[in-house]
Nucleic acid binder design. Structure first.
Lengths: 146, 146
DNA sequence: ATCAAACGTGAACCTAAGTTCAGGTCAAGC
DNA sequence: GCTTGACCTGAACTTAGGTTCACGTTTGAT
């Protein structure tokens, strides 16, 4: 399969990471990953791309949009394993975010429970249905990040 | 503004709820809300639509997709204030979901922190980058719900 | 009776995150 | 040296959740 030791084809990266080939190409267009090309224009990946891809998927799984992930990935040296420095920076970005989201959801969960208690006679005044104090006035959708 | 007491135009609902008129019409197409029509085909809403809309937005704010919200709204009697029964049912649906999501994010946050400690020499074996045990094999995106 | 503001409709457009497809090229085992 | 599976590209399509637009009708205050 792989010719030169340590270099991976897109199929190998896909298989090892569980991420579809189409998604890998898509991430490349969005500049989240990169690869050198063979003389025949095929992609050849450095092993470290597996870590990048893993990082991307882990981040996505908590709802972080690709654009944000791309920003954080600029801390990661291309074609090299993630440094401790990278982890410190990424973690600063992510865990603040995660903590905020956790807090938002806990508040909402608790308010739901309160609403049951109160029978929601005061629905319109109730914190649950006026979550602006928590979420701000950001329009529709799940504005947990962005 | 309002002619018959308690009936609201779409503009009034929009203004009071903070939800754009276009979104209200969109929710109607998705059968999340409804309204009677005047002889001139304009929408007239029962006051209770404000509660429905508030419920929709509160639910969306924690990432619940409209389709799921629509399901839960079938418990809500049309043109009537939410009953205690409704709250019990909705809360059963939502708080299970919220608890799961909170748990997922806490695990991921903690793993991020671990990764800093470990310098991620074992990145590929690390729980963070192989979150399938947590999220299952659901493909891309934030599969926290659905 | 008039007239502007508010309302109505359908169609097109938008972002995110991809997937699918058509048509063509590369590479490696036999 | 040939063949087949893997790879390439760009374009079109998808779902969610809407927004924007063009164009026509209703309302209700004066």
């Amino acid at each position: 399969m792989s010719a030169i030791a340590q270099e991976l084809t897109i199929g190998e990266v896909s298989h090892r990471s569980g991420v579809p080939v189409s998604a890998l190409r898509f991430y490349e267009r969005r500049r989240l990953i990169g690869a050198r090309r063979t003389s025949g224009n095929q992609r050849r990946y450095h092993r470290s791309v597996l870590r990048r891809v893993a990082f991307i998927r882990a981040s996505q799984s908590v709802g972080i949009p690709l654009a944000k992930i791309a920003e954080v990935l600029t801390f990661l040296p291309p074609d090299a394993p993630p440094t401790r420095e990278f982890w410190v920076r990424a973690s600063q970005c992510w865990s603040e975010t995660l903590n905020e989201r956790i807090a938002i959801m806990e508040r909402l969960r608790d308010r739901f429970t309160e609403c049951i208690g109160c029978g929601c006679l005061s629905f319109q005044q109730c914190g649950l249905v006026n979550p602006r104090d928590v979420l701000g006035d950001q329009g529709p959708g799940a504005h947990l990040l962005t």
